[in-house]
Design a protein around this nucleic acid. Structure first.
Lengths: 240, 240, 240, 240
DNA sequence: GATGAATGAGAATTCATTCAT
DNA sequence: GATGAATGAATTCTCATTCAT
């Protein structure tokens, strides 16, 4: 009878248990957001009692942070390697922007969690998530700096503005999607944002425009197309 | 005796009472955010009891919405008139962007309230605040449309992207300021964003300044880019 | 049916409700001590829900403090008036000591609460209970000062020591009683402590005082000095 | 491989393990008090896991008791021998009082633990700590009894009162020091308490009356004291 | 119209102890 | 002998909203 009243005392290795809990927490957090998720609920979903949660995570908030960190680690683990395979400023820029948009497209619930619940926290800037984010931002700006260095881009636009327009624009664009109130195409959005930034920064200012132009413009476009072809295959989708 | 046993509050005209309550609510909400503000606190600040709040506002949430609406009404009451006085696409664009940034600069607490607390609500898109916002957005895009119409701007950039980059960029730029963790200059930011958008959209590409340079110059740049692609990665990095 | 599920919503004036809660809290606290009493229990005893407790008392701790303050107010309300009616240093001293002992005798549970639970709190010295206590202590020491002033008492005994021996002694004496493990007679204890203090302070007594005295006193002191001087330490240990 | 998968702790002899745990427990208890110390914390400090604690100590409470017992054993191991080396009632009394005060002065954290946390427990009187304490008390009262026996002290003062005033007074005096809110000098306090007790008990000075006894009587007492002396060296510190 | 007492379900978190391995 | 995962009941405190007066 006692056995009946205390049926489960399965002893798992730490990592496994942590994994269970994080999986459960991710699920619940995604579905309902942070505030609306209760530790009780997460514990049930993880198949443990509430106390067990606290063996592994000091607070509910820490649990969220770990979940988000794991997400970041999975999602952003390889962009640096991938970026190295992309040639040409426009392509490299687009890659970073597209990657960012893709993540938001692929896991809007998790992104909503990050954007609406984690980021507004006062301690956000001290969190590792902020740091991971910053690294991504810096990688993106590095591409812009390359463009400036090789004379493709003007050097009189504050990088902070560039950063804000890229990431703010991307976020604004995905807003409705995160709320499950609209769709967007990461490809089209990436093209749009990249073009805007590219032309906005372009020395002389013609961007990726399809606009008819003189021979010079057409030549420039040809060069850009060439740029997209040399490195590993990552084609500018809009072409062809 | 009566006064002693029942210090009943004066009966005020409805509008006056509503005004008292909204003033108090605005103050408390601004200081502590929505969740952290309690109705009790607001009632005290308004000099009424909690029950009275509910005579005028069905829920705490409605109270916030009214407060924000009032804010919008005050802030955005006259931009349309002012805009009519501004000539030139660049100037008109900059005016709208600057106005937006100025509001965030001038009342970061209220803006944080809107951005972090009101907007994430599921019902946000049904609220009048959303509508007011949309009107501003549309006015801004109207300027862009004028630019397209008069040939200053290309017509192949999705307006949604333009909108997202303007307002997302502005919001991203003011992020730290809303959190009281950093400053920004509305003037400089407005210049930056406007220039980026202006040049990004420019037909033929001359931006606000930055005269393009002759065809030869542009060809030279294209060639330089090509040169940068031929060899192995990084070959030209240290170049001038 | 709804009426059945929500049977009690009796609306009492604030003071009455506060009284009910304090009465209930006093009862529970006395019976089980502070830590062992739960707010749930107190709420039930008061006939309200837990939330109601918190309308009137910000924390459980504040509730205890209020209960103790009320106790002090009742108990020590009139000692000053009564003391004025007592003549003679010994009698006045005994009155203050007896009063103190009487309180502990009369309400050991409450006193245990104060001594074991309230007083050890770090914030105790900032509490009003501490202040009330101090006033009593000072009134007692005022009697000693009178004795010094009129020549009955020596003036070379630190008042702090006098205070500690009176109140520490009283407390130590009542220790077992507070734990419900022994009895004591306030009258006898008051006599004992008062006599000890009285003779201990008496001018003309011999103590270890340095006070100049007649020849007899000086002789006595000489003897005591002798006592302290004979032979090396331990010399006689194994003797006899 | 084995080491990696199971960093099992060394198997220590029982005494050594117990010693480790008690040292750790003493440290933690002293720093944070009993309630605020968790077994987890103690285990970490001891370099073992929680389960190991329970192999040696049935409960957390037992652990505290053992720690305190050890403290008592160290501190009070030799007072009886030392006392035998002190001559004269005043000196012997002062020695016992001073010793007591010194312990509180030297290890206020441990004493606070005993006074505030261990002693209020219902089972305290059944604990060995209580017994050890009692022995000290009895040794002190034995000195008083000697004083009565040799006529130095009156015999009409209840010993319980004497005990209470000595130890209660001492405790009250050290109160602030135990809370780290004040200082005291064991020497001065010992002088004060001893003097008060000594004169308070002195034959010749009884109670409410001023009656001192004639010079002859007092001299006789002094002589009797001298007669009782063999005389090891333990000087009255205040002299010279 | 105004009051303000009462609600009550729920939230996160704690930790001494057990016992399968 | 040692481990350390798991327990799980219990705790204080919150607060938007209602409604009898």
């Amino acid at each position: 009878m006692k056995a009946a009243s205390r049926p489960r005392r399965e002893r798992l290795p730490r990592d496994e248990r942590v994994g269970q809990i994080m999986t459960a927490a991710r699920k619940i957090f995604r579905e309902k957001g942070y505030e609306a998720s209760s530790t009780a609920e997460i514990a049930v979903a993880a198949g443990v009692v509430e106390g067990t949660l606290y063996r592994y995570f000091p607070t509910k908030r820490d649990l969220l942070i770990k979940v988000v960190e794991e997400f970041y680690a999975n999602i952003f683990s390889d962009y640096e390697a991938q970026l190295r395979g992309v040639r040409g400023t426009w392509n490299r820029l687009r890659f970073m922007i597209w990657k960012h948009l893709s993540v938001m497209h692929g896991d809007p619930d998790m992104c909503r969690l990050i954007v609406h619940e984690l980021r507004p926290w006062p301690q956000y800037r001290q969190s590792s998530v902020f740091t991971l984010n910053q690294r991504y931002t810096q990688s993106t700006l590095a591409v812009v700096r390359e463009g400036i260095a090789n004379g493709e881009f003007r050097d009189d636009m504050p990088l902070r503005i560039v950063r804000d327009m890229i990431f703010g624009g991307a976020e604004h664009h995905t807003w409705a999607h995160l709320r499950d109130e609209g769709r967007f195409s990461p490809d089209e959005a990436a093209d749009g944002i990249t073009n805007m930034i590219y032309q906005g920064l372009a020395r002389g200012g013609q961007g990726n425009s399809e606009a008819v132009g003189g021979p010079v413009k057409r030549l420039e476009r040809a060069v850009r197309r060439l740029e997209g072809l040399t490195g590993p295959r990552r084609r500018n989708r809009k072409r062809a």
